[in-house]
């Protein structure tokens, strides 16, 4: 008889334990869904940053094509140990910095984006006697959680020095 008494209410206790476990699962699942959504938004925004960074490389290439002689002189000065002129032509030039770009807003994020040219260098391959212009640009913004999200874009263009008469 004592045994029966001790077992009274066991089903209720078990049900309570199961209920607590199930509720915990629901809470965990809910938080997982929230995290996934944040990650999805971040992926979307990186696409945005990539397009903008690629766009700035277009402007850098245009400047190079319009003023190739001056760029090469800046590059030569850099090789001789003076980086000031190259910086003035490339990363330090105002036209290659766009702060607070807001034209690519979406319903999920309307944070302003900063775009900046990061590097513009000449790569030489002595073996094949070829030269390439390496352009790197970056875009970044601060998300709603205060984290910095950034993306770099690289463009490599084959170049040829031709003496114009």
């Amino acid at each position: 008889m004592k045994k029966l008494n001790r077992r009274s209410g066991m089903a209720l206790i078990l049900a309570l334990v199961f209920a607590v476990v199930l509720l915990q699962m629901a809470v965990a699942y809910s938080s997982m869904t929230k995290t996934t959504k944040v990650q999805t938004v971040q992926i979307d925004e990186r696409i945005k940053l990539d397009y903008l960074a690629q766009g700035i490389t277009e402007l850098a290439l245009l400047k190079f094509q319009l003023y190739p002689g001056d760029y090469y002189a800046c590059w030569e000065a850099f090789k001789l140990g003076n980086a000031n002129y190259l910086k003035e032509f490339t990363t330090g030039a105002d036209e290659f910095t766009i702060a607070n770009f807001g034209d690519s807003e979406s319903s999920f994020n309307n944070q302003k984006i900063g775009i900046q040219l990061a590097s513009m260098a000449i790569y030489t391959d002595n073996r094949w006697k070829t030269e390439a212009l390496f352009i790197q640009a970056g875009a970044e913004y601060t998300d709603q959680f205060g984290r910095s999200i950034s993306k770099d874009a690289v463009r490599i263009v084959s170049v040829e020095r031709v003496l114009q008469k």
Binding site: I47, K48, E58, L61, L62, F101, D103, S106, S158
Partner: peptide
């Protein structure tokens, strides 16, 4: 309505390899 926007730039560069 919901919207998604992407922006980029294009310049008058000559053909590049």
């Amino acid at each position: 309505d919901k919207q998604y926007t992407l922006s980029s730039f294009k310049s008058r560069v000559r053909d590049t390899k």
